[in-house]
Amino acid sequence: MNITIRGLSHQFKVNGRLLPVLRDINLNIAAGEFVALVGPSGCGKSTLLRILAHLLTPTSGLVDIGGADPATAVAHKRIAWMAQNPALLPWYTTHDNIALVQRINGTNHHTPADLLALVGLSDFADAHPFTLSGGMQQRLALARILAQQAAVWLMDEPFAALDELTRERLTGELLALWQQQRPTVLWVTHHITEAARLADRVLVLSPRPTAVLADVPVSLPRPRDETTAEFQAVVRAIRAALMQAEP
């Protein structure tokens, strides 16, 4: 599903004063593209994602998700959302967390058991989320995203709270799952190498008020070898743009 953003601006009102966060953002994202967003902390990455998910109405500008505005896209269940806080429902079992989103979304391409198997949680169907480790909780959140069969995945630093190894394993699994469903992904991250490893394109954002500083294409075949010179060149390009961003 294509995403088009034209002249998008947003300002928050903080204590009666206006805080400009996004300024005149223009973006084209092709269907099935995996786009990573990097930028200084507080620049407005989450704000941009929230606007796309219709959790926030922008001050001005146009957002088009597959020919519809965000409200319609959400109403048509095109959006899957995942943030750093997995927001699992602790009062339901792992299985029921999946079953609930399927019921609400009206999707039943897979059984909850299938989805749990896909993320390696088969043995934990009857467990409650609070008994799972942080990594397992994010896996469950991932399974919930898969259950939605959505065309767009908006992911705001989903694995930021995990240790390096778990994180690498999970992003690897995510990539495999993405290749099966082929949704359009917007992936916010602070990790430059992670962005280079996962994305088709890395967008580097400037500090507030945010504009797109650089658009770095990553045309390397997956799985990517981080030791190659080409990969290192991409990492350097992202880092250079980010250096420009940080004052």
Partner: peptide, 26 residues
């Protein structure tokens, strides 16, 4: 209720009743 859960249910296009039953009441 946890704002992160409410966000999630909004992206699921859930109504007030669903949110009440699955998030607010528990």
């Amino acid at each position: 209720a946890d704002p992160a859960m409410l966000d999630l249910f909004h992206t699921w296009h859930s109504g007030r009743r669903e949110i009440f039953r699955h998030v607010r009441a528990p």
